[in-house]
Amino acid sequence: MPTSESNRPKVVLIVDDIPDNLSLLHDALDEAGYTVLVATDGAAALTRAGRQQPDVILLDALMPGMDGFEVARRLKADFATAHIPIVFMTGLTETEHVVAAFEAGGIDYVTKPIRPQEVIVRIAAHMQGARQVSLARSALDASGQATIAIRMDTGALVWQTPKARQLLAEFAPPDGDKAPADLLQWITTSALARTGNQTVLPFSLVVADRRLVFNLNEQTADGEWLVSLREESDRASIDALIPAFGLTQREAEVLYWVTKGKTNRDIGDILGLSPRTVHKHLEHVFAKQGVETRTAAATLAINTLKAGGD
């Protein structure tokens, strides 16, 4: 039976080059019921985080070789690990170092010498939020929706569903983890319009006869904007009709052109079929939709396509 999000083991990755620190935190977290992973350098931390997807990372700021700030930047630049909360551990409390920790992607920090109970309390708070986000993102992934999350202060695409990644690659391949500049400008303008109770118009990218439409959803507690994507084109509409009514590819094509007001002869010319063959396909469509007329079939299809685009 699959493990649910609520009873999945709580995993913490500790990254520190000092064995005594690792031992102190490992024992405290283990006693508190966490599954503990350890890494003693930046390279090992990146590998373990990518493979085992911890819920929270405790990261030493100053390590030989790759320091914690660089490790954090690399974790946040990788879609597979960008969502993981990072809590820095540092003996440096000067403002410049605290700022550096947050700029590198940290969500919090604790100072050395480490006080295990303080660390446990902070981890518990961040883990609860992280799990709620993870559950929501998993639901979007499973539903096949196209959604992205953008961090406006950096312009970074911090997360995207598989469907969104596919669409962006086809319409506007991102520059690394950066969102397209015109998309960022639209979010800024739309956010301002929303605060003034003004209408927020969608943003579109057009490639040939295909159009990718972006709609602004909401801003998360972390300040990231969620944006939904949908493709509008003949092909996308036809593909949407297939699972909606259990149609074959050809039946969906015939039904789509019926929604456009085309006659059987028109449809035959478009698809390279005889009017009689088009009529046969329509009979099958009517049966699968549970309707008896061309108008009813078209209305049902139009309403289905409209609902899918909302």
Rank of each mutant, 00 (worst) to 15 (best):
H126V: 11
L184G: 01
L46I: 04
L13E: 13
S190W: 06
G272W: 00
E292R: 15
L212A: 05
D30Q: 14
A179I: 02
D209I: 02
L167E: 03
A193M: 11
D182A: 14
R115I: 08
N21C: 01
R165A: 15
G50D: 10
I120R: 03
L62N: 10
D175L: 07
K112A: 04
V99R: 14
L75C: 05
V98T: 04
D17S: 07
R131D: 10
A301E: 05
R235V: 12
D182G: 03
T304M: 04
G272T: 03
A43W: 08
T189V: 02
V98M: 03
G308K: 11
L305A: 04
V206R: 06
A125G: 07
I120S: 07
R48T: 12
V278C: 00
T195V: 12
P174M: 12
I123K: 01
S237A: 14
H97T: 00
V11L: 12
Q128I: 08
A164P: 05
N197S: 08
P180N: 07
K260M: 00
A252H: 02
F69Q: 11
G105P: 01
V87H: 07
V38W: 04
T47E: 15
T299V: 09
Q166S: 14
R235E: 15
A181K: 14
P85M: 07
N217Q: 13
E232L: 11
A28C: 00
R165P: 02
A72Y: 09
G196N: 13
L205E: 06
D16S: 01
G223N: 05
E251N: 08
D209L: 06
R151G: 14
M127N: 09
L24E: 02
F88Y: 13
Q128C: 08
A146I: 06
N264E: 04
P275T: 07
A172F: 05
F245N: 03
F286A: 06
V227Q: 09
S228L: 08
G33F: 04
P54K: 10
M89K: 07
V121C: 03
R8M: 14
Y109A: 10
V258F: 04
P162I: 03
L75G: 11
A104M: 05
A181D: 13
Y34W: 12
T147Q: 15
I107R: 14
A179P: 14
V98L: 08
A100S: 06
R276Q: 13
L212G: 08
K280C: 02
T3L: 14
K306G: 02
L13F: 10
L247K: 01
A44Q: 14
G268H: 08
K280P: 00
N21R: 01
L192C: 01
L247E: 05
A287I: 02
A172W: 07
T3M: 15
W159H: 10
V200P: 05
M1Y: 12
V119A: 02
D222S: 15
I270N: 03
V15K: 11
G106R: 08
F203W: 02
V227L: 04
K163N: 07
A172M: 13
K262I: 00
T220Y: 05
N217P: 02
V258T: 10
L167N: 06
Y109E: 08
L25R: 06
G106C: 07
D153A: 15
G144Y: 15
N7K: 09
E103N: 12
L168E: 07
E31Y: 05
M63I: 14
I84W: 05
L226Q: 14
A208T: 12
D239T: 10
